[in-house]
Design a protein around this nucleic acid. Structure first.
Length: 272
DNA sequence: GACCAGGCGTCTT
DNA sequence: AAGACGCATGGT
């Protein structure tokens, strides 16, 4: 690919490392402090941050599109103001403050669906490794060593036997069902877009291996449904501890985003 | 070698 | 409606 200069963005308070390492995406590898290499959709890139400036060196043709990255990193959303609304509540502010640089990404749909199918009964390092191998074994190369997710159509052609090398265990059959249903047009981004959250969740759950948790992660981390709250047993415990009477009013309307900050705080054990 | 990991499906009460 | 349990795999 023809070499072009890096794209430059105002980070608007984003913390690149916190955003990419908080467990909402599994497509990036840290090469050095504040430098990441990876793939989102058809976009391969090196990304780094200096102070409040974000640099993106495209490594594939699609990655030259600045609008893709603005949307991916939610740079066109006013997070500083959004977070101020949460911080009117003391306990929520304590969760948000250390992770104010985290942005909830807008990730490509199929990539997100597959990565959270892999996430079930699993932990972040292995999810990352499984997702990387999925792209390496069955995807197409975008740049040296960087592979795109297989398309729904190409993955749908595979057999369970062909997925054995991935070592995804019981999740392998779920990957295939997701590919087949998306490829056949049974569950697509276009069908989900106009649906209310509850109905979109149910449509996603038609895919084998997709339950409420995985569905909600796709809704929040890919489709921008900011009110969706991906719940797991640990999140429920954290919420019950922090907010025994429910989420504070200040966060209403953005519960899912608020949850992301609580989850970061919980994972780092800063509050629990 | 037991136990765990950001679940889900199935089979029970 | 809610709880127990199996599921494949790799790490600690």
């Amino acid at each position: 690919m023809e070499i072009c200069s890096p794209l430059v963005f105002d980070a608007n308070g984003m913390d690149l490392a916190a955003t990419l390492e908080c467990g909402q995406t599994f497509g990036w590898r840290r090469t050095k402090e504040n430098h990441f290499e990876g793939v989102a959709g058809q976009c391969a890139a090196n990304i780094w941050q200096q102070n409040n400036t974000l640099y993106i060196q495209p490594l594939s043709l699609a990655a030259q599109n600045a609008d893709f990255w603005r949307h991916y990193f939610a740079l066109d959303e006013d997070y500083p103001t959004l977070l101020q609304r949460f911080c009117t509540h003391k306990k929520l502010a304590a969760c948000v403050e250390p992770y104010a640089g985290v942005r909830v990404l807008h990730q490509p749909f199929f990539d997100t669906l597959l990565s959270f199918i892999l996430s079930q009964n699993n932990h972040i390092p292995r999810i990352t490794s499984l997702f990387q191998n999925l792209r390496l074994f069955y995807g197409t190369e975008l740049a040296p060593g960087l592979y795109a997710c297989p398309t729904p159509h190409s993955l749908a052609q595979k057999t369970l036997e062909e997925l054995i090398p991935l070592k995804a265990g019981f999740r392998a059959k779920y990957l295939l069902d997701a590919a087949k249903k998306v490829d056949a047009g049974v569950v697509t981004e276009e069908l989900l877009a106009p649906l209310p959250d509850a109905e979109a969740r149910l449509l996603l759950q038609n895919i084998a291996g997709v339950g409420p948790k995985v569905a909600d992660c796709v809704l929040l981390y890919s489709l921008g449904r900011k009110r969706v709250v991906p719940m797991d047993v640990w999140m429920k415990r954290a919420m019950a501890t922090l907010f025994p009477h429910g989420m504070p009013r200040a966060a209403k309307g953005s519960e899912g985003i608020a949850q992301q900050y609580i989850f970061c705080a919980m994972r780092d054990k800063t509050l629990f």
